[in-house]
Simulated scan of single mutants.
Amino acid sequence: MNISLRRGERIFINGAVLRVDRKVCLELLNDVTFLLENHVMQAESATTPLKRLYFVIQAMLMSPNDCEAALQLCREMFVSLSSNALDPRIMEGLRAAVRHIEDKRMFDALKVVRGLFPIEEQLTTTAEAENAREVA
C-alpha cells in the first residue's frame, strides 16, 4: 500500500507517530494499523454520541498495546447507543462496527462510525426543529 504525505503531515502507525519533513511516499509492505492525520479527531470535536464513540475507537487504533480501558468504554458506549438509537441505519452501522472491533479491524470500525455522522446530524437537526416548533 502506498501513502503520500505532505511536508509536516503526520501518520500514526501501530501506535507510533511519524511526521515527515518533506513530501514523501511511504510504501507499507506488511499488514499494519495506521491512521492518517486528517482522520484523527481531537477531543474537543467529540461532541455527539457517535463522535465520542469514534474518538474511543480511534484511541484503540492509535495505542493498540494499551487499549483495555478504551475497549471497555467502547462496549459501554455501544450498549448505550444501541438502547437509544431508533434509526435502523444507525443500528446496522453499530452492529457492523462491533463486528469490525471484534475482528480487531479498528480502521474499518472508524470508517463505519464516520459514515454515520451525517445521519446523526440529520436526526439531531430534525429533533431540534421539532422541539423549537413545540416551544413556539
Rank of each mutant, 00 (worst) to 15 (best):
A109R: 03
E121Q: 14
L50Y: 07
L61S: 02
A70G: 00
R99A: 11
S82L: 11
N30P: 07
G93R: 08
V17A: 13
A96T: 03
E44M: 08
I13W: 10
I13C: 05
F117V: 04
L71G: 03
I3K: 15
D21I: 14
H39F: 09
I90W: 09
R95T: 00
D103G: 15
A16R: 07
V56H: 12
F107C: 13
A85N: 07
M91T: 04
S4E: 12
L116S: 08
N14R: 08
K111G: 00
F78M: 02
D87C: 01
C74Y: 06
R75V: 01
E27G: 12
E37M: 07
I11N: 11
M106I: 00
R75D: 05
L36M: 09
V79Q: 13
P118D: 08
L73I: 05
V79C: 10
M60S: 00
N65P: 00
V113A: 07
R10W: 01
A43I: 02
S4P: 04
N65G: 04
V135G: 02
L18I: 06
R99L: 08
A59E: 09
E130S: 06
V98W: 14
S80P: 00
L86P: 01
F34C: 10
E76M: 01
R7F: 08
E130G: 10
G115L: 04
I119N: 01
L81A: 09
D87E: 03
N84S: 15
F78W: 09
I3R: 12
P88W: 02
Y54E: 10
L71S: 00
F34G: 14
A85D: 06
E134N: 14
V113S: 08
G93I: 01
S4K: 15
P88E: 06
A16L: 10
V24P: 07
A127Y: 04
F117L: 14
R133T: 00
H39K: 05
L36D: 05
F34Y: 15
P49S: 03
M62E: 11
T124L: 14
T126G: 05
P88Y: 04
L35V: 06
D103L: 14
E44N: 07
P118G: 02
L26H: 10
V24N: 14
V112C: 05
A109C: 04
I101G: 05
C67M: 05
P118C: 14
S4W: 12
R133V: 06
L81Q: 03
S63K: 15
L53S: 08
N65W: 13
N84D: 07
E76Y: 10
I101T: 03
V98G: 07
M1Y: 07
S82N: 10
E102W: 01
L36S: 03
M60P: 03
M77A: 12
A127D: 04
Y54T: 00
D103M: 13
A132L: 15
V40L: 02
S63F: 14
A85S: 13
